[in-house]
Simulated assay, not measured.
Amino acid sequence: MSYTGPDPDAPRVPRRRRLPALVTVAALAVAAPAVWLGWQVIGGTGEGALKKATPPASGSPSPTDDAKNGTVPLPLKGKVVVIDPGHNPGNFRHTTDINRTVNIGNESKECDTTGTSTDAGYTEARFTLDVARRMRTILEKQGATVKLTQDGDRPWGPCIDERARIGDKAHADAVVSVHADGSAAGNRGFHVILPAAVHAGAADTRPIVAPSRDLGERIGTAFHQVTGEPRSNYIGGGTGLDTRSDLGGLNLSTVPKVFIECGNMRDPRDAARLTSGAWRQKAAQGISEGIMSFLRR
C-alpha cells in the first residue's frame, strides 16, 4: 500500500501541543496491564481462563512434537524385549557344532537345528531373521530396548540354552522366538507355543507359565488380526496355542517367553505368504502389537 503525505493547505499543529498526548499514551500503556490484571481478579477468571482465551502461538509444539523431542515418554520406554530368530542361516555348515547335546532341565536336546524351508528353498532361518529385524524397528520406535539373540553376526547358533540365557541376563520383559513350521502340505496356519510347568534340573518355568500364556494369547490375537493367517488346523485344536515341555528355549527361561510358528513352509498357500516381503512386514507388525499389548497391560 502506498503512503500519501498531508494536505499542504492543512494548518500546521504547533510542535509543543504533542507533548500532553504523548504523556497520556505512555500513562495508558503503563496502566493497561494493571487494569487488565485487576479485571481478571475481580472477574474471577484467573490465570487458567487467560490461557484458555489466548490461542497458541503459530509454530507451538504439539504433543506429537513433544514425543518426537523426547519430552513425552514413549509407550515402551524402559521395557526390554528380546527377539530370538529361530535357527541361523549358517547352521547347515556347522552340523557338528549344532548336533552336540545340551541339558534343558528335564532332558537333553541338540544344540540347534538347521530349520526347515519352502519347497523352493527359502529357509526358515532367513525368514525368522528378516521378521526379527522388522520387529526390532517397530518396537524401538515405541521406545523399547530390543536385543536379538543373533543378528546374522555369527557363523552358527547360538545353542538353545544360550538363547534362553540371553533373555534371562537381559531381564527381558518379554521374549519371543520366531519360527516357521515344516509340516505336511495341507496343514496350514500359525500357532503359538507356550511353556509347560517344568521343574527339573536347571529348569523351573512355574513362575513364568501364567505371564507367558498371557503374552502368547495376545500375540496370537494380534497376529491373526493383522496378517489374516488362520490359526493352525493341525495343532492346538483350533486355538492356535500349544503347550510344550520339550523346548530348551522355554524350559530354561526365567522371563515370560513364547515361540510363534508363523505358518507352514511346506504348504503352498502358507509358503506364498511367508516368502512375501509385504506379508513378513505384517507378521512383524502382528507379533509386535501382541508384545505391546502385553507390556502395556
Rank of each mutant, 00 (worst) to 15 (best):
T4D: 15
T4C: 11
D7C: 04
A10V: 10
R12H: 14
R16P: 03
L19C: 00
P20N: 06
A21Y: 15
L22R: 14
L22D: 00
V23G: 13
V23H: 07
A29K: 08
A31V: 13
A32V: 11
V35Y: 11
W36E: 13
L37R: 13
L37V: 14
W39T: 11
V41T: 12
V41Q: 12
G43V: 02
G43S: 11
G44W: 06
G46S: 05
P56R: 13
G59F: 08
P61G: 09
T64P: 00
K68L: 14
K68H: 13
T71Q: 12
V72H: 14
V72S: 14
L74N: 06
P75I: 09
L76E: 05
G78C: 09
K79V: 04
K79N: 07
H87Y: 02
P89Y: 07
T95H: 12
T95K: 14
T96F: 13
T96V: 14
T96N: 15
N99L: 09
R100N: 12
N103H: 12
N103Y: 09
T113E: 03
T113D: 05
T114I: 11
S117T: 02
T118M: 00
D119P: 00
M135Q: 07
R136F: 06
R136C: 06
T137W: 11
L139Y: 07
T145D: 12
K147M: 12
R154E: 13
P158L: 09
C159F: 09
R163L: 06
A164H: 05
A164F: 04
A164V: 04
K169P: 00
H171R: 15
V175M: 10
H179N: 09
A184H: 13
A184L: 12
A185F: 07
G186L: 07
G186V: 04
N187L: 07
F190Y: 01
V192F: 01
V192T: 01
L194F: 05
A200S: 14
G201N: 08
A202T: 13
T205S: 04
P207L: 08
P207Q: 11
V209T: 07
A210T: 13
R213T: 10
E217N: 07
R218C: 00
A222C: 08
A222S: 14
G228H: 06
E229V: 08
R231H: 08
S232Y: 03
G236T: 01
G236R: 01
T239I: 03
G240D: 02
D242E: 11
R244K: 10
G249H: 01
L250G: 00
N264T: 02
R266C: 02
D270H: 01
A271N: 00
R273K: 15
S276V: 09
S276Y: 10
W279N: 04
Q285S: 10
G286Y: 03
L295F: 05
L295G: 01
R296C: 06
R297Y: 14
